[in-house]
């Protein structure tokens, strides 16, 4: 489990994102992966092969274990996308769907 360290002099603004219908507060400039981890989300997706749970491994764009559905687009790397006000983020279950 992760959390933001208390930084009394950090004046960075917060943005609110939607994760699975819940409002999460994130530091502006954070990646989606950092914001989710800091809010206690510890499983990001399940794998296409065995549906086993996964969370970020590398946080630098190499491992693809932080894949999420962001604003309706599946398979986005949560560690490479920066949060934006009102962004909608969803857990990714198994392989991405082709239905739109």
């Amino acid at each position: 489990m992760f959390a933001y360290l208390k930084q009394p002099d950090d004046r960075t603004e917060n943005v609110i994102i939607d994760y699975e219908g819940k409002a999460l507060s994130a530091r502006a400039g954070d990646t989606v992966a950092a914001a989710l981890l800091a809010s206690g989300v510890d499983v990001f997706r399940t794998t296409p092969v065995s549906q086993s749970p996964r969370a970020p491994w590398c946080m630098m764009g190499a491992c693809f274990d932080c894949l999420l559905e962001i604003d309706g687009v599946p398979n986005r790397q949560g560690c490479q996308v920066v949060v934006a006000q009102g962004m909608k983020v969803a857990h990714q279950k198994g392989a991405r769907r082709i239905d739109s």
Binding site: A3, Y4, D10, G29, A34, A38, M60
Partner: peptide, 13 residues
Amino acid sequence: GAAQVLLKTSGVA
């Protein structure tokens, strides 16, 4: 290294 990225970018531990 991933934990360090979280620390540097967001102050998340």
